[in-house]
């Protein structure tokens, strides 16, 4: 065997070993790599008083902004199967709205209410100018406060000219 071939084979063997090791490690730790839990995950366990992150969509028609001395809000976070009531005192991010994905950091109270100390807005992978959103609203294809936009093929078909 030529030395070059031998070096190449050694390299490939090391690579295969390393890749499988990494793959196994990642699958073993995958539960800990999760940045947030969903409302259904939360519903499965009893409140344990530990700080955690809850992720989901702000449910339509549930946002009550509390005004006065402390700005804040009460709203429900849902994943379509379960929902959790969240209370929060503080400034909400600009992107916060009904139908928006959010990740809130806080503690689940014994009564099941999630008391948040931080609210982050989760942007999705869709980017569109206002006109496109207005057109979708007008045609009834999408109401932004009800959830994610329709499949991109509806509003961003490759055949359509730019800016349409």
């Amino acid at each position: 065997m030529k030395r070059k071939t031998k070096r190449l084979l050694i390299l490939l063997a090391c690579g295969a070993g390393l890749a499988s090791a990494a793959g196994l490690t990642l699958s073993a730790f995958s539960d800990n790599l999760v940045f947030f839990v969903s409302p259904s995950d939360l519903a499965k366990n009893t409140p344990n008083g530990r700080q955690m992150r809850l992720g989901g969509m702000v449910e339509q028609g549930t946002v009550e902004r509390t005004s006065g001395g402390h700005a804040g809000a009460r709203f429900k976070v849902t994943d379509g199967k379960a929902d959790v009531l969240v209370t929060y005192k503080g400034l909400l991010p600009d992107l916060f709205r009904e139908g928006q994905g959010v990740v809130v950091l806080g503690v689940e109270q014994p009564d099941g209410v999630f008391k948040a100390s931080e609210v982050l807005a989760k942007h999705d992978e869709n980017y569109m100018p206002k006109e496109v959103v207005d057109a979708l609203k007008k045609s009834g294809e999408w109401n932004p406060s009800s959830g994610s936009p329709p499949p991109n093929a509806v509003w961003n078909a490759p055949a359509k000219p730019a800016g349409s």
């Binding site: 569109m128 991109n152 093929a153 359509k160 730019a162 349409s164």
Partner: peptide
């Protein structure tokens, strides 16, 4: 695969 989820003008 598939159309991008960014509007063409963007």
């Amino acid at each position: 695969t598939g159309a991008p989820t960014i509007a063409a003008s963007l």
